[in-house]
Nucleic acid binder design. Sequence first.
DNA 1: CAGTGGTCTAGACCACCAA
DNA 2: TGGTGGTCTAGACCACTGG
Lengths: 248, 248
Amino acid sequence: MVARYERIAAELRDDILGGAYPVGSQLPSEAELAARYSAARGTVRQAIAVLIAEGLIGSRQGARRVVLGNTPSQSFAELHSFAQWAKANGLRVGGRVISQTPRAARGAEAERLACGEVLEVLRLRTLEGEPVLIERTVYAGWIAPAVAALPPDCDSVTQALYDSVGLVFAYGEHLIDAVAAGASDARLLGVRRGSPLLRQRRITTTYEGRPVEWSDDRYRAGSVTFSIRNSIGSNPLVRQAGDLRLGD
Amino acid sequence: MVARYERIAAELRDDILGGAYPVGSQLPSEAELAARYSAARGTVRQAIAVLIAEGLIGSRQGARRVVLGNTPSQSFAELHSFAQWAKANGLRVGGRVISQTPRAARGAEAERLACGEVLEVLRLRTLEGEPVLIERTVYAGWIAPAVAALPPDCDSVTQALYDSVGLVFAYGEHLIDAVAAGASDARLLGVRRGSPLLRQRRITTTYEGRPVEWSDDRYRAGSVTFSIRNSIGSNPLVRQAGDLRLGD
DNA sequence: CAGTGGTCTAGACCACCAA
DNA sequence: TGGTGGTCTAGACCACTGG
């Protein structure tokens, strides 16, 4: 069951990506679109909110909406899983578990993951055969057995945990910065010690807000880039969650 | 004139940040909130969409909404301006222009900025007196005169351009990755050559989608962190614009 | 000033989750 | 099965942009 506004959004998106509305041009008014699609104004607004959130169009009170871009942007949804992101981009992903260690929670881990026992897993991930990512993931105790039961060459942990125990990685917070490669980072990724790595630390929770994992992921410089689109203004449907923070 | 839904959102936000609804707990139903605030359901939903976009609460069909976090998150709006972000965080910002060069657009610049003549400005920015950021900004020709007229120690270019010519930096796209410090980066930031820098390349446009600037900003490692909150699921009001990309 | 998007209402039906 | 959030409608008024 695809919602009406989703179909309208899809049509408008195709029009924009297809060049019917060039960058800088104006979209038809809400009233026109409502008539064209025989939908209520609210439904059209919902469709437009989707495109605004994708960064394709801009909006402000009193003026016609403007096309800002014509490059498709995937949602951050894929950011939850390296494997799913790679697959969506048609890339061959691989990897293996380097080490897997049950231990007591240390420092802030106990609070962050809301548990005392954790499972630490170190994985090396490859893209098109090249090592690009080191994942140091700490899983909460309650999910540790399911993680430990996975095969060491499992390509998508997210998918595997969904299939095996129905776990959904629903929400995430990500902290992104740059760090120098340590000795083990350098050896595993095949770069020199001290060379720059893009670090993404994230905490993931279930739909209920229960913490699942805390991970420190380090990408080889040049292998991947984060992309964000934003806008100022008071339009609440546009607002992005995220900001620049002080260094830890 | 503050909208009704903004005030409702503010009240709910205060309740969450104040601990009235702990992380993991459930929010009242839409019907309850509508009654409490004497507002229509749609208005309450709009308020809730704000909090969802801030990453404070999660939502899915059929289940009560859940509190996901209780740390305030500024919008990406501040990401448009280093000075405004710093000010919002109570930090003292400084900086100076290192060089300023009018020249012809090179390579992809002409297309990206939709102009032939550009102004390249190199700035060093400081936070609490410490150098943390190098900005290499290329301004489109049409705004170059206004930029050139700014004082060399101008703290907020965004603010100054708004005051002087009414220019608004309305939309932005940001590409974030890690690079090694080059010779001049290292000298200006006071770090060793080859040490990791967090790079944020961005293109900024007006409300009309007209490109204003293209910038390559490099932060000293450890000085700042990007933070992003996301969620999976089909809720259109939640969707974030942004994704992980292949290296350039 | 006309046109446009932003806000708000009141009500309806449906899909989904949990008990 | 009852309650909840997701979708959709039809209409109203207001704030703002632009000529």
